[in-house]
Design a protein around this nucleic acid. Structure first.
Length: 223
DNA sequence: GACCAGGCACATC
DNA sequence: GATGTGCATGGT
């Protein structure tokens, strides 16, 4: 990865200032919600290109059906999975993707999320990325929030916020942005979790595709 | 009723 | 390598 950014005092200061401004507005977000590592991993797949409110409905359906467990989920029929996941959209794809993830857990990590603990982060990341339906953002959601690894999650809100405030162009490659945060701020799992949570919250309030910059906690960055 | 949402894989050029 | 398209529900 020769595009890996160097550590820079200037960039570190810019990122920490962003964090401070958002934290002062929102306080601790406690992101990601979920009662178990498995629930977080499932949520990471269900939220692909989908509003979180729709994901919540699907997760509630899975919970009611007793399917927030890898073995139980593998025992369910595709129709049961699709019915439960329907509110989150793309439900046929997502039912298949969640099932593939469970098969991977079963075959590679003893069928439980805790089984991943003995595998190095870079190995885990490569394994997740090799699964059909798990791309960089989903893999990093799982690594950071379900596995506690110090990996920074880059999403659409991250790109919008960075580009609108002149920190990095929107089209900067995923790995370059991820390394930019990790090199300058990390490794620090708790900071990465909270930083991404704050980006999501700020993004939802002020940085959707139609910008509503009035009142944005990051407005001072533009001065 | 149009537009949008925290992606990803695949086809085509 | 860049660009386009399908996937699908629910909120604004």
């Amino acid at each position: 990865m020769n595009t890996k950014p160097r550590k820079s005092k200037r960039m570190e200061a810019a990122l920490r200032r962003m964090f401070g401004l958002m934290a002062a507005r929102y306080g601790p977000t406690g992101w990601w919600p979920g009662d178990s590592a498995f629930e977080i991993a499932v949520g990471a797949i269900l939220t692909q290109n989908t509003a979180w409110t729709n994901v919540e409905k699907a997760i509630a359906n899975l919970d009611r059906a007793g399917l927030l467990d890898p073995a139980a989920l593998l025992a369910a029929t595709p129709e049961e999975l699709e019915a439960a996941m329907r509110p989150s959209g793309y439900y046929r794809q997502k039912a298949q993707r969640v099932r593939l993830f469970c098969e991977y857990l079963r075959d590679r990590h003893n069928g439980v999320m805790e089984g991943m603990a003995v595998t190095p982060t870079e190995t885990l990341r490569a394994e997740l990325l090799a699964l059909n339906g798990i791309g960089p953002e989903t893999a990093d959601d799982i690594l950071l929030y379900a596995c506690g690894r110090p990996v920074f999650v880059v999403d659409a809100y991250t790109r919008r916020i960075l580009s609108r405030h002149g920190v990095a162009p929107f089209e900067t490659p995923y790995e370059t942005l991820r390394a930019m945060f990790e090199v300058n701020l990390g490794p620090d799992t708790e900071l990465f979790r909270e930083f991404h949570g704050l980006i999501v919250w700020t993004g939802k309030d002020f940085c959707r595709s139609r910008p509503q910059c009035r009142g944005c906690p990051l407005a001072p960055l533009l001065k």
